[in-house]
Simulated scan of single mutants.
Amino acid sequence: MIEESVLLESRTLRSSVLDRTDVLDRVKVLSLLPDGVHVTTAMVAAYFGAAVEGIRALVHDHRPELEASGYRVLAGTELSYFKQLSGIRSRTPSLALFSRRAVLNVAMLLRDSEVARQVRVHLLDMEHLARTQPVDNPGLTEPVPLDVRIDQRITHILGRTVVPMFNALIASSGEHRRELIELRQDIENVERRMCRHHKRLATPEGENPAENVRSTLKAMTWQAFEQHVVGLLRRDGCTDVVVRQTRSDRGIDITGLTADGRTVAVRCRNRPGRRTVPHADLQKFAGAARVLHRVDLALSVATCGFSHESRAIADLTGVVTVDREEVEAWTAGVRLKALR
């Protein structure tokens, strides 16, 4: 099992486990701002039983890493918009915000905190359990040929078990680091080739797979597109995936659980004739997924692009956008990164 000291020293290893934010609540309840997504510096300090100045010093020393995991400072128009969205009443000219991923990142950096130490212990226990338990995909409901099921299982194991194992080995290795990085790259190349191979097997000879995927998506009705996304979620290991029968959920079309137990809400937008998803649509979905239902993972999936304003709202609220190119790649067999 990986030692806690390796987690403290290795940014690569820390980055590989940032999605396991549920471990925070296993140790202590993390209070969130009214938006259901962010916490302030003072709230982070309270969670870890640390001084506010200590958290600020940690941010100063590791700012690029923390920004990559969701830390940001709002000011001006962006701060005003956030206050309006979340209902915060404050006259401060700037506001530092941490996402749950950023809080977990702090736990993996903060040495003088018993709460942070417990988070690291639970996190490493979960990673060890994930690597040693057999992988299963209960979402496959339709009969699939045995050789295809074996190939799919191998691809699944490569992505969810072998690559993370190499990440941990690379993080704890000194002498053979370069060789391990090259081996990991080889494994990732095999995974990509197997995904492409699966797609070629399903495509008639003489057809262009990319064009075939694009035309198939373009011909879908919005109901067919929702069912298509349901199938992709199940293929990637999600369970309890259902299409919402009512439209009173403010933009949530699909709900379910990821393979590692996170709650997920999905907004599907089949807009092949449109250029972008309007920001009002993204704002409504973000409010429903993050504030009303407080899901762990919110996905906005569209057959077009996202406007600059939409992406800004997504970044601010933690919504993961999946545009046309990503939907096509997902359809062609590439696993959606947010579900890994």
Rank of each mutant, 00 (worst) to 15 (best):
G49M: 10
A50C: 08
A50R: 08
A50Y: 11
A51V: 03
V52A: 08
V52Y: 06
V52E: 12
V52T: 15
V52L: 09
E53F: 11
I55N: 02
I55V: 14
I55D: 03
R56A: 08
R56Q: 14
R56K: 15
A57G: 08
A57R: 15
L58I: 03
L58M: 08
V59E: 09
H60W: 07
H60N: 11
H60S: 14
H62V: 01
H62N: 13
H62L: 02
H62A: 09
H62K: 09
H62Q: 13
H62I: 02
R63I: 04
R63V: 04
P64S: 05
P64N: 09
P64L: 03
E65W: 15
E65T: 12
L66I: 09
L66Y: 06
L66S: 03
L66P: 04
E67H: 05
E67W: 03
E67R: 09
A68Y: 11
S69T: 15
G70W: 03
Y71N: 05
R72L: 14
V73S: 11
A75G: 13
A75V: 07
A75Y: 09
G76K: 05
G76E: 06
T77S: 13
E78W: 00
E78R: 08
E78I: 01
L79P: 08
L79T: 09
L79W: 08
S80T: 13
Y81A: 13
F82C: 02
F82I: 03
F82R: 02
K83W: 04
Q84E: 14
L85E: 01
S86C: 01
S86D: 00
S86R: 00
G87V: 00
G87I: 00
G87K: 00
I88K: 00
I88E: 09
I88G: 01
R89M: 10
R89P: 06
R89L: 13
R89F: 11
R89W: 07
S90T: 15
R91Q: 14
T92Q: 14
P93K: 07
P93Q: 07
P93D: 08
